[in-house]
Amino acid sequence: MVIRSKGEEKIEVINVSKNFGQVKALDNISLTFEREHIYGLLGRNGAGKTTLLNIICNRLFADSGEVLIDGEQSCENDRVQSHLYYMSEKNCYPETMTVRDAFRWSDRFYPGFDNELAMKLCDKFELNPKKKMKQLSTGYNSIFKAIVALCVDIPYILLDEPVLGLDASHRQMLYQAIIESYALKPRTFVISTHLIEEITTLLETVMIIKKGSLVTIDSTENLLKAGYAVTGKSASVDAYTTNKQIIGEDVLGGLKTAYIMGQLDRSSIPNDLDINRMDLQKLFIRMTEDSKGGINDEN
């Protein structure tokens, strides 16, 4: 038995790089997932989120760098790999396996699997446990995998697009189930999704990846406080935003909206400007966009 100090109980990604041919999927990225936290791993399509999760879970190999789970190398390490469950978009269960059998085997591979909760969740989501994997729709595939993820008794749960194919009602039910599961048994959840607005309230810490590099890592609260949007006539907005950190701009006719990172000083705001807080989605869009202009722009 390996005894570990509390400080070692985390997932550490250290200087990891990964290329697919000429494409740089991860560029010397370093980050840490602490125990009993809910993380949001955000990034545009192709930003490298799934590649990162695949490397952590030993599905892909990093070209350089390393991943430590609880202080041990994660690559080809059964002991630490059994401390995490990765819900990927790809269904890795045999097509002819039934949902019930999958639960049974999850219990064997992850001792302490909560079969009672799994059956309750099946009932709640109306997932027939007698169904085979190949009979599940995209939505029910996600539900099945999410149920397994919530019922395994391990410290790290990684969810890649957990609500893929789910309707609004099922999405809400799943978020609720994650919150309840976390409240009952705090574990580390890493959630990678494009539906940012919906999960904002769920996340404690947000990590934003752009083109394989970590752009931001901060608490959701700090991030939401850190950005605001200023709208008004172009000249007024330009005058106000001088010497401020602008992360994006929208121009419509004579009106301009500037998105600014930094503390808002309400006393210095001119009367002709509107100030709004940015939500996480807007902040994400602004932080990850390339200045390529709109589709009607000539340049």
Binding site: N58, R59, E76, D78, Q81, C92, Y93, F109
Partner: peptide, 11 residues
């Protein structure tokens, strides 16, 4: 695929 999904190594 099934073993990798369930935290088992290639070895």
């Amino acid at each position: 695929l099934f073993l990798i999904q369930n935290g088992r190594s290639r070895k």
